[in-house]
Design a protein around this nucleic acid. Structure first.
Lengths: 344, 344
DNA sequence: CTGAAAGCGCTAACAC
DNA sequence: GTGTTAGCGCTTTCAG
């Protein structure tokens, strides 16, 4: 009765897919050797490896990642928390992260907060239950309880998009400087009555920072820094609406600095349709450097943020740490670039 | 020696976060009761539940999803395989899926095939190792070995975007009909020399199907159905390039039916910049119904596909099955809608 | 380079 | 409604 391993009652549930020990039996080795062949092929003799590979094919083995993660107390999951997928910016960041992680066998776990810090905390707490290898989240501001949790978190953590006082690592750019830079451009172009148009600025700290930078530059130049804000998500139509509202609220406005290219493009198209000359009647500027802004005529003046690079660099920071090395810098400033189109 | 559970040597690794039995001990119940309180609160008496909740807070318990998935041979993961994230269409589908799955506590595992069927198979095989609850993949065509695998797969599976002979469930639309519909519109508008402009049609079956529908309609009308194809991914600039190439290859062309709104919009903007009158000099049509096409003037004529609805419906099909019911229909046609802008 | 034993933390199955 | 027992399939640890 002690010895019938191959006919033992198999599993409680119906799924009787082959396991490591099925492969091991087939290959005539122990299951730990198969495990090694899978996780670190070089630690097994070439000949043994070959037998194991043949056995895997023969029995049709599919690796059970769940069991592996439980035993090692670590999955190959890396949660990535972003505030929105409606904003292309985050999609591009995700592409950068995914491309890099994929090469190293890590899988993203996507979380969408909808700009809610409460949701961010819930998501991260849930993801922690998956024994993630590392964590990527957006922004430097979190609920206090989450900040405490993350401060105690023992694995690589990158906060992306913004620059500042990060918990662990950080990849981003200064939105304050980006706003300042664009304002500087507008001022030096000779515009004096310049409006900033934003949306949902209470939940989006980066938008607020861009406005702050903008405002600082205008004040330096002795100018007012009026602000108009909307509460709907950024959208082409909102740009059109915003243009109309701006012109009626500030009839003598010369330039509008929009919080992103989507609104700016919507406004630009709407202005053209209304017969306004750009930039003579009204100058328009955006932020992000999205392709359609550059396809318009006049071409949109904007500040390009390197979205995919943020993703790649964040992933690289993590991979470096997972390989036991220390990245050269804990905080990476990806910078930005002013693109002067014909819209200003 | 038999009885010192609370001081036993805890865990092999440093991570000594509290476990279910810590909570159970604290609450004075058995761990299975805690498990029940977590998974099916109604199966536990209110009073017991309260004690357990207090204990969870007290010890700072974080649920280990990995262990749960191993024991139950099922995770709450649902892989979603898409060909690209550069195409907004798939991002919107993902948003629809995510919103619905999230409400039911399922987590998406995102896989990007880059239009490679080989990659699709690799991704799905890997994801299978996570004991997923269900599967969502794009298109009806797969590598044969994958089709075989999926046919044997015992859990809910939805193939999205296209309509046809699905393995299990199916949510999508007829791209053939969409192409046919747009061609019909152009023909009935009186255009006779109509070009179809596509990209990467060998890897993208849906684009091919739209062309087939287009072609069929033109042939019915006794017209030629010339096709121009590019190999780079769709992009605004490619639309501009395509317009120039089309005008030089077919100088007397009257209308161009683009495979998507991105190319069509790029062409439209480029045509306007060149001083061409739309639709008098050249009519332009797209596919998908993206917001920027509708923000242009002239507004882009296009066929709208309900992207987010595809995601929501696919998720709903799966949820229904997971709740033990049979969805009303195995295959859902989400349809499409012709939007006649001023570009045709 | 390979193996034996002992769990990882949870839930299925069956009692009571 | 709650408890006992026995794994889920893998990797860690410690030998050799």
């Amino acid at each position: 009765m002690t010895d019938q391993p191959s006919t033992e009652r198999r599993r409680r549930k119906g799924l009787d897919s082959p396991t490591l020990s099925d492969v091991a039996r087939e290959a005539g080795v122990s299951s730990i050797t198969v495990s090694r062949a899978l996780n670190d092929p070089d630690s097994v003799r070439a000949n043994t490896r070959k037998k194991i590979e043949a056995a895997i094919d023969k029995v049709g083995y599919v690796r059970n990642m769940v069991a592996g993660s439980l035993a090692s107390a670590s999955s190959r999951f890396i949660p990535v928390i972003v505030p929105s997928l409606s904003n292309v910016v985050f999609v591009e960041v995700i592409q950068g992260l995914q491309a890099t992680f994929e090469q190293h066998g890590y899988q993203i776990l996507l979380g969408n907060t909808d700009y809610s810090m409460k949701r961010e905390e819930e998501l991260i707490r849930t993801f922690l239950g998956w024994s993630p290898t590392a964590l990527v989240t957006t922004g430097l501001r979190h609920q206090e309880s989450l900040s405490n949790l993350l401060a105690r978190y023992q694995r690589p953590l990158v906060e992306i998009m913004e620059l500042g006082d990060a918990i662990d690592m950080n990849v981003g750019m200064s939105h304050y400087q980006a706003g300042h830079c664009m304002a500087d451009h507008l001022v030096s172009r000779g515009y004096r009555r310049i409006l900033y148009a934003g949306t949902q600025m209470q939940g989006n700290y980066r938008t607020r920072q861009r406005y702050e930078g903008h405002r600082e530059r205008l004040l330096q130049a002795g100018l007012d820094a009026p602000l108009m804000e909307w509460q709907s998500p950024s959208h082409f139509e909102l740009g059109a609406t915003a243009l109309d509202a701006a012109l009626s609220e500030y009839p003598d406005i010369e330039a509008i600095h929009f919080t992103d290219d989507v609104m700016a493009s919507g406004a630009l198209l709407h202005a053209t349709k209304k017969g306004l000359k750009i930039p003579e009647d009204i100058a328009i500027a955006g932020f992000t450097g999205l392709p359609f802004g550059q396809a318009l005529s006049p071409r949109l003046t904007t500040v390009v943020s390197p979205r995919e690079a943020i993703g790649r660099l964040a992933a690289t920071q993590i991979i470096t740490r997972l390989q036991g090395q220390q990245p050269k810098q804990r905080s990476i400033d990806v910078g930005f670039e002013l693109i002067v189109g014909e819209s200003s």
